[in-house]
């Protein structure tokens, strides 16, 4: 077959480009360094802000926000991240901020990017809502497979079944100079823990709130989620730490989460009622105001896959 001359330089350039891409990927993966930098957002309070992306070989699953509060008695950690390695590096980063011991880990919900770092904290009591512990047992294996597939070598050594998690039953607790209030909400999953540090006014919402990052809905109950957003909005806070996306000092992220969720549900529901099939719903335009959200198209496709069948069942019954 004759190869047109015109294409040869392009072909060569593409080859070189590909080689460079490969080399860069190999280097990033080999270091396996999450480069966690604690960001102070209030007195005694720090967060690690993850990328507004999907799990990948490049980010190693660092797509999530985790945090810690340095009380006079010791450090309380909120969520442990997507891998054993993340947990270890988080612990290392915390030790550069304070030499106080880590005394407690709180897990907001059962999604893998929030609890798979637990192994790095096995010497510390780890707490989650009782329902969350059940859900980890139910879905943990599937999550682990998925993350090994998507984040590859970053996951090595990560296992969830070896770590004991205790049920959090308290509504409130005073740890030295910090009073923590615990809210058992739901809707993103069937158990979502929201934590308010009354001493600083910092509110950790877990994944009930996303900020400039598209919501994930594999276990969502939108009706319950909206109710939880109302309750979160009623809480008196100064700073809000969403599960994904930037920290804020206003109700913006709550309203944004509600806006997208209401749009998503009403769009899919109406489309089903008007006779659109699933592929037609996937092709519907997404309003411009959501255009800057991270992972928009992919999460929209996922959500249609989760939510369309729910509404379809209603029209066939």
């Amino acid at each position: 077959m004759k190869i047109p001359n015109l294409n040869k330089p392009i072909y060569l350039l593409l080859q070189i480009f590909l080689m460079i891409c490969l080399v860069q990927q190999v280097l990033a993966v080999e270091k396996l360094d999450y480069q966690l930098e604690p960001e102070q957002i209030a007195e005694d309070t720090y967060v690690f802000i993850g990328a507004k992306e999907d799990f990948s070989y490049e980010n190693g699953g660092n797509i999530v926000n985790t945090g810690f509060i340095v009380t006079e008695q010791g450090v309380v950690v909120i969520d442990s991240g997507p891998s054993k390695r993340y947990g270890q590096q988080m612990r290392e980063a915390i030790s550069k901020v304070t030499n106080k011991p880590i005394i407690k880990i709180l897990i907001t919900h059962h999604h893998p990017d929030h609890f798979l770092g637990n192994q790095a904290f096995q010497d510390v009591p780890i707490y989650a809502l009782a329902e969350t512990i059940k859900l980890i047992k139910r879905d943990g294996d599937g999550f682990l497979d998925n993350l090994y597939r998507m984040s590859g070598p970053w996951m090595s050594g990560t296992d969830f079944s070896v770590v004991e998690i205790k049920a959090l039953v308290l509504k409130q607790e005073k740890i030295a100079n910090h009073t923590l209030k615990y809210f058992k909400f739901g809707g993103h999953t069937s158990a979502d823990l929201v934590i308010l540090d009354e001493s600083t006014g910092v509110l950790f919402t877990g994944d009930l709130v996303f900020h400039n990052r598209t919501l994930t809905t594999p276990h969502a109950d939108p009706e319950n989620w909206l109710k939880s957003l109302d309750k979160i909005k009623a809480i008196d806070f100064n700073i809000i730490v969403p599960g994904h996306g930037e920290v804020a000092n206003n109700i913006g992220p709550i309203e944004q989460t509600r806006d997208y969720l209401v749009w998503l549900e009403s769009t899919i529901k109406q489309a089903v009622e008007h006779g659109l099939d699933m592929t037609e719903v996937l092709a519907l335009p997404i309003p411009e105001r959501f255009g800057s959200f991270g992972v928009l198209k992919r999460e929209y496709i996922r959500s249609v896959s989760h939510r369309y069948p729910v509404y379809e069942k209603l029209i066939f019954n």
Partner: peptide
Amino acid sequence: MNKFQHTFIFALYVSCFNFCFATS
């Protein structure tokens, strides 16, 4: 599919680029 596989498939595409150009 991970990034490596993406890259691999992309590379496959590139390698057949000239062929596709020549015939449907």
